[in-house]
Computed example of a mutant assay.
Amino acid sequence: MLFDSHLHIVDREKLGYPWLEGAGALNRDSLYEDYAREAQRLGITDTLHMEVDVAEGDIERETDYVKGLSRQPGSLIRGAIAACRPEDAGFPTYLERVLADHFVKGFRRVLHVVPDDLSEGSLFRENLKRLAGTRLTFDFCVLPHQIAKAIALADLNPNVQFILDHCGVPAVKDGLSEVWTSGITEIAKRPNVVVKISGIVAYADPDSWTVDTLRPFVEHSITSFGWDRVIWGSDWPVCTLGGGLSTWVAATHALTQGASADERAHLYQLNAKRLWSL
């Protein structure tokens, strides 16, 4: 059974998504009901909603919207990873509100869509330190050449739990690169970082990838971090760019066929449940 740590829901009637206009095939509604129907057939029993870079004024409305979905009978949603703006002076007040709401399990600030120096700003770093000692995690979504930026933040905040999304966003269709390989090896040395095995089908050639195309990226990530520091995510609906949810779940099972039952259980659900005390 699978714990999905990375579900995106897009409902354009309820929230604003400025980035969607240039998102091609993703510029559409991707509703919870569509995800849940397929997920339940695949053995996905739990999921966390991952923020979808909504319009800044909709950040807290997004959390409320997802919370409403979680209250539906039989809902798979167990919590949310909320958007945040650590670069803003209002972050401490926002953090106080979030800490009072146990539905929110962590934060993400997508860093590959902003200037590289954003995460180097003093206010950003000061605010990130406020997560130390809280129950909140922080997701990194960075490109391979930005992994060094993530490493710097992890080193500055040894008491904050970080999660590296999508195996560090490798350009799968271009093959292994030294920048990605060495970056994964280095960031994995930080005990306060785990890696999310997710998203990579969207970075492969949609017409030609196979399990063997993905294998080097998954195996290097797991070997570097170890089975106790890996979690699984669907990255739905982005995974539809590379075949869809069922295809990604099938590929996951094929990629982990040689692992022990205990190792698979840690990747599939146990590590996530421990990470967020679920």
Rank of each mutant, 00 (worst) to 15 (best):
F3S: 06
E13Q: 15
G16P: 05
L20N: 12
E21V: 09
L31F: 11
D34W: 04
D34E: 15
A39W: 11
L42R: 03
L42Y: 13
L42G: 09
E51K: 08
D58Y: 04
K67W: 10
R71M: 15
A83Q: 13
C84K: 02
C84F: 01
C84T: 10
L95C: 08
V98T: 11
F107V: 07
R109A: 06
V113W: 07
D117V: 07
L118C: 08
L123I: 14
E126H: 14
L128C: 11
L131K: 04
G133W: 07
L136R: 08
L136V: 03
C141F: 10
V142P: 06
H145E: 13
K149I: 03
K149W: 06
N159S: 11
Q161K: 14
F162T: 05
F162P: 10
D165F: 00
C167A: 11
A171M: 08
V172N: 02
S177M: 04
V179T: 15
W180C: 07
G183N: 06
E186Y: 00
I187L: 10
K189R: 15
R190D: 01
V193D: 02
I200T: 12
V201A: 13
S208P: 01
W209C: 11
V211N: 14
L214K: 00
F217H: 07
E219I: 01
S221P: 06
S221F: 13
S224R: 10
F225L: 04
V230Y: 06
W232G: 09
S234H: 13
G243V: 11
T247G: 05
A254R: 09
G258K: 01
A259P: 00
R264L: 09
H266D: 06
K273D: 01
R274V: 06
W276V: 11
